[in-house]
Amino acid sequence: MADTNNPTPPKRPLVEVRDLNVNFVSREATVRAVNGVSFDVMPGEVLCIIGESGSGKSVTMRSLMQLHPKKRTRITGSMRVGDHDIMALSDKEMNAVRGRVISMVFQEPMTALDPVYTIGDQIAETVMRHEGVSKAAAMERALELMQMVKVPSPERRLKAYPHELSGGLRQRAMMAVALSCRPALLLADEPTTALDATVQIQVLIVLRKLQEQFGMGVIFVTHDLGVAAQIADKVAVMYAGRIIEYGSVKDVLLKPKHPYTLGLMASTVHGQNRDQDIDAIPGSPPDMRFLAPGCSFAPRCKLAQPECLASFPEPNDHGNGHMSRCFRTAATTPAMEMGIA
């Protein structure tokens, strides 16, 4: 197996997203799902986008693959992956990019795998389509991939249909399909959420190892802070379609600055005192059809002041690339000690 030799990582980011806006337009309303998101992913780097449902984390990622229905979606901003300007690609060009440059794994492998073909056929087909090799060579590659994702008795599993595999094996098989053409960028949409704890950690470890081995960039969407802690290099926290905090995984999870990140950590049950209530964030996320001009988290924020409702804050620099968008960061530090003791 040839290693992708990357002795010196290039300066240029693998992914560059600038001021991405995604609106879903229907007759009744416009849902402003993503509102001005910018980020970079370096080659060989894992970016975890953390957020709750409706935060725009999945929408952001799917935009990179043009997976939104064209008719109902308005996208502005710029996205570059490798040498490809995603916004300028035609459907045909995008198809060529999908699988070879950018690849994706989903939460539910059953929807991504074709139930009427064996796992081996599906991997081989992807390899043949993108690299034009023979069927035999493609099958050999498929076996190699199944070994890489640590599927036990891979020869037998290649001949299996998706429904014959357990949840964890199916997820690995989907990873094998996704990795079959050695993509430069892997998009992962909560791939371990539906798995049992003991299986989830196995899949995460395999993913992490392969990512390092391939020098692949990964954008990993999750709602689980524990998963992010396990796999991320960089973390972006999204709320109401915006990145409200960004930084290295240690900075964001150990020294969070934004009140929402703090609230999310306090809400996540991880050994809190059982005789006390959890310090939950009150209320629920805003309706994405009617977004107010200010900070979207302000209505639920303990620290909110009138200025928070007036305009959306500019990024604060906390050093080492750690960024938060909050007017009240200065006040969060004492609050932090109380929130996540």
């Binding site: 003991t198 998963v227 396990q230």
Partner: peptide, 23 residues
């Protein structure tokens, strides 16, 4: 099972899975 539960601690990652295989 308890070792598989993920902590919010990027400094102590689990390197070897506590269990192999699926149930």
């Amino acid at each position: 099972l308890l070792q598989s539960a993920l902590e919010i601690d990027p400094e102590h990652r689990i390197e070897t899975p506590p269990l192999v295989g699926d149930p």
